[in-house]
Design a protein around this nucleic acid. Structure first.
Length: 575
DNA sequence: TTTAGGG
DNA sequence: CCCTAAA
């Protein structure tokens, strides 16, 4: 019910409810691409992750393993199931930068500050912040990209030349590289890059703002990234030189085979994207003698040494014409890598398959101690910041299967086999039990289903029922503001216009979403502040919601009255 | 496809 | 957010 007072108080000038004829509404076809900027940082991200680990753990014992003869096999592949959509346009679309001045924590960690922006922020606020911990050259992922063509399926494997070993001197804190750590205090002015071609990607929109932002900003971002690159420690060996050119390749070449990003991004958001497998170094129990039999106390100096053995990202399936160039293939992979890494930045910790949620527990309490048998199954993961209920169980079956259907059975087997052989089961990383768990964890459900070794769970029909629910994306205050303003101007009931007026660039906000949000806003405005949940909407905005809602409701009533001249008797009775 | 509303 | 009837 709308109080009369509400309507009276509504002081804004509302335009006539003129609605453009539908024929006049142009349909915008969205053809957008990831820009080169994102491609720059995938590798740096790996290094950054490791660097943060090192710097935060006060790595006095940091050491670099330099695998000889490629002994270290299980590292740093960044791939993901994937398919190419031919109809996607080729031309690049620049990222749209937007400066956010008031990022709330939730918003900020949910997705807007993709890794590139995180890096930017870090660089901005800390001079040389990334170069203060040396020796991460080993984490230059994917120096060797080894595509092996197998029929229609291309299995890609990238291996680094080294891994970073790090010794943690922290007794009570697992090295953390969550959004907080990465973003630091840079959230106040974060350059955000959103991609319009993926409605699930751009986690944040700055309504209307994005379009007006200067084009030069992406370059700035690029420059910042390059700054990071410059601080990277490249080794002089030929292999590292290769790595360098490999990266530069992506920096300077146009991509030709855009990737259907949405589907695999769906995977990312709801499943564990990529994980950091770590193992305790059992051989380095420096302080084991300090523990007497049955002693329950932990020596003050007990240290746990963590070694990140691998950094793996779920597999990538690529379909590409035989006539495509190797370069284009590489670019595809690079793009996948970039996109994959540019979202989701919270570290999860699992001990023996169990997720450790309590950040305040000490390592020892968690079972992470120098002489604990659990150490074999210590597992870090990079997770989406939004709370995903289950680490891995919510695999978007439908999408993956959809894409898998592209490849032929025989080829699929090859892919699966490949996964079994090398990537998934790094020789000695895990004991059998753990390996099994890891397998379950890392193989997308679709792969499991296609794999002859594993039981099939669901029929096709069931798979379709498992339609992916879109990621929850709470409206930011900024968005609410934009929505309110648009509704004030256009009224309720013109959600398509509202969408195109104020959320043109936010492809993940459909007009239905906007309508739904308005619905909840009205409800929110009517309930007491105590009953409201989520990010608080400023009362001023809620007042405007009520005002606009009242006003437009009144308009609708009047419209109806005009249409039905004879007042309905029922209405009279009710009054 | 877009609106409107219930779930 | 999803689903859908109805326009």
């Amino acid at each position: 019910m709308v109080s009369h007072k509400c309507v009276e108080e509504f002081s804004l000038q509302f335009p006539a409810n003129a609605r453009a004829p539908r024929s006049a509404r142009k349909r915008r076809s969205i053809k957008k691409e990831i820009s080169e900027n994102d491609k720059t940082c995938a590798i740096d991200l790996l290094a950054t992750v490791a660097e943060n680990l090192l710097s935060e753990s006060g790595c006095e014992n940091m050491a670099i393993d330099k695998p000889v003869n490629g002994v270290e096999e299980d590292h740093c592949l960044v791939t993901q199931k994937h398919s190419v959509k031919e109809e996607f346009p080729v031309e690049d679309k620049p990222l749209k930068p937007a400066t956010l001045t008031n990022v709330n924590p939730y918003q900020g960690s949910l997705s807007p500050c993709g890794f590139s922006s995180v890096i930017n922020g870090k660089v901005e606020t800390e001079d040389g912040g990334f170069s203060n911990s040396a020796g991460i050259a080993s984490c230059q992922a994917g120096q060797e990209l080894k595509p092996s063509i197998d029929g229609d399926a291309v299995v890609l494997d990238a291996r680094p030349n080294g891994v970073a070993s790090l010794g943690s001197s922290s007794r009570t804190k697992v090295p953390s590289l969550g959004a907080d750590a990465l973003c630091g205090g840079a959230l106040d002015d974060v350059n955000m890059f959103s991609r319009d071609d993926d409605e699930n990607f751009s986690g944040y929109i700055c309504p209307r703002v994005t379009k007006k932002s200067p084009r030069s900003v992406p370059r700035i971002g690029d420059r910042r990234i390059r700054k990071i690159l410059a601080s990277r420690h490249w080794k002089g060996s030929s292999r590292h030189s290769d790595a360098k050119s490999w990266r530069n390749y992506y920096l300077h070449h146009q991509r030709s085979y855009p990737i259907k990003k949405r589907k695999y991004f769906d995977n990312i958001s709801d499943s564990d994207d990529y994980r950091l497998h770590s193992k305790m170094q059992r051989g380095s129990r420096t302080f084991s003698t300090m523990k007497g039999p049955g002693a329950s106390f932990v020596s003050r100096d007990s240290h746990v040494k963590l070694r990140i053995k691998s950094f793996r990202v779920p597999e990538l399936f690529v379909e590409i014409p035989e006539t495509a160039t190797v370069g284009s293939l590489k670019r595809m992979v690079m793009e996948a890598v970039s996109t994959l890494l540019s979202d989701g930045h919270r570290v999860g910790l699992m001990v023996q398959g169990k997720k450790v949620r309590d950040d305040n527990k000490t390592l020892h309490q968690t079972g992470i101690s120098q002489d604990n048998t659990h150490l074999d199954s210590l597992d870090f993961s990079l997770e989406p910041s939004s709370e995903a209920p289950h680490l891995l169980s919510s695999n978007p079956l439908g999408h993956v299967c959809e894409e898998l259907a592209i490849c032929h059975g025989s080829n699929m087997d090859a892919v699966v086999k490949s996964e079994h052989d090398s990537a998934l089961f790094p020789s000695d990383s895990f004991d059998k039990e753990t390996a099994t768990d890891e397998f379950k964890a890392l193989v997308p459900a679709a792969l499991s289903e296609l794999s002859p070794q594993l039981p099939r769970h669901k029929s096709k029909q069931q798979q379709q029922q498992t339609a992916q629910r879109r990621m929850r994306r709470p409206f930011s205050v900024t968005e609410v503001e934009a929505l309110v303003q648009a509704v004030e101007k256009l009224g309720t009931g013109r959600w398509r216009d509202v969408k195109h007026s104020a959320f043109e660039d936010a492809d993940h906000r459909t007009y239905v979403d906007l309508k739904d949000k308005w619905k909840t806003l009205v409800h929110t405005a009517k309930i007491s502040p105590q009953q409201r949940r989520g990010e608080p909407v400023p009362q001023e905005l809620l007042n405007r919601v009520l005002n606009a809602h009242g006003y437009w409701s009144q308009q609708h009533v009047q419209l109806h009255e005009t249409l039905s001249l004879p007042p309905k008797p029922e209405a009279v009775l009710l009054l």
